Computed example of a mutant assay.
Amino acid sequence: MAKVNADDVEWTTLERGETRFRRKQLSQAAGGDDLGCSLYELPPGRRSWPYHYHTGNEEALFVLAGTGALRLDGETTPLAEGDYVALPADESGAHRVVNDSDEPLTYLMLSTMNDPDVLVYPDSEKVGVFAGSPPGGRETRTHHAYYRREDDVDYWSGEESTE
């Protein structure tokens, strides 16, 4: 483990549609394995990752500066500096951060780093499967894919008869 200063960690940027943010993966920079921590800066009018929840990893959000809103378990609640939100590893932890203010929203996102993990995206009816390394992990994944829930098949579909 190593000490890092956020000022020494490079920002990465993700932009796709209404999603746009800057992120510093602090835990990764410090060599953390079992606990993830990222610093996010969400510009005015933008949203974080699509609305989702994890089935294998608990998350938490801590607002450092600014205001915004949190879509949490289907409802919207305001966010302000000093707010802390626990996000359980189940449907009740479904979330998306929205910056509905005129100033940047800066927050920490923490998570357990359990492997494997399945993410559920209720709005798009998709699931994401991560094996070999959890979301945000550094290791090479043995499986990482997204599936539409409607593509569900019976356990025995496609099995060849051995008789």
Rank of each mutant, 00 (worst) to 15 (best):
T76S: 14
A69Q: 15
E75S: 14
E75C: 04
C37V: 13
P50K: 00
G32A: 13
D123Y: 12
V63K: 08
L61H: 03
V127K: 07
S92D: 08
A69Y: 01
E59H: 09
H143N: 10
L110F: 13
Y121V: 06
G136S: 11
N57D: 11
H144I: 11
T55F: 01
D33F: 01
P134V: 12
G31S: 11
Y40C: 00
Y53M: 07
V127I: 15
G82Q: 06
G93I: 03
E58G: 11
G137Q: 07
L70C: 12
L110I: 09
L72K: 08
S157W: 10
K3L: 05
T106H: 10
S48Q: 01
P104A: 07
E81G: 00
Y107A: 13
H144T: 10
E125T: 15
D115L: 03
D100W: 01
S161E: 13
M113N: 12
L108E: 05
D154R: 15
D102Y: 04
R148I: 00
H52L: 09
E150T: 07
D34R: 08
R149N: 02
D90T: 06
Y155T: 13
F130D: 13
G56N: 14
G68I: 05
P44E: 08
A6I: 03
G128R: 10
P122K: 07
P135E: 03
E91K: 13
R23M: 11
T12Y: 08
V127E: 07
R46V: 04
Y155V: 15
V4I: 06
Y155D: 12
V9F: 02
L61R: 04
P116G: 12
G93T: 05
E58T: 11
T112P: 02
E81N: 01
L35E: 00
L87Q: 12
S38C: 11
L35P: 00
E10L: 13
E15R: 14
T19D: 01
W49S: 03
Y53I: 06
R141N: 10
P88Y: 00
E18C: 01
T76D: 04
G32C: 08
M1F: 03
D73L: 06
N114Y: 02
S101M: 05
A94R: 06
S48E: 02
A30H: 00
G74V: 08
W49H: 02
L79M: 09
G82C: 08
V129Q: 05
L119S: 12
A89V: 01
P116Q: 09
T77D: 03
R16S: 14
V9P: 02
P44V: 10
G136P: 08
R138P: 14
E41C: 06
S111W: 10
Y51P: 02
S124I: 13
G158H: 15
D154L: 15
F62Y: 15
E139R: 15
K24D: 09
P122C: 07
A6R: 02
F130T: 13
G36D: 00
S111M: 09
T76Q: 08
T106C: 09
P78L: 05
E160I: 05
L64E: 04
K24I: 06
R138N: 15
S48V: 00
P43N: 04
V129A: 07
D123C: 04
N57V: 08
M113I: 09
E15F: 08
V118K: 06
L14H: 11
A30N: 00
P104S: 07
M113F: 11
G17P: 06
H52Y: 11
L14Y: 14
V118R: 07
E139D: 15
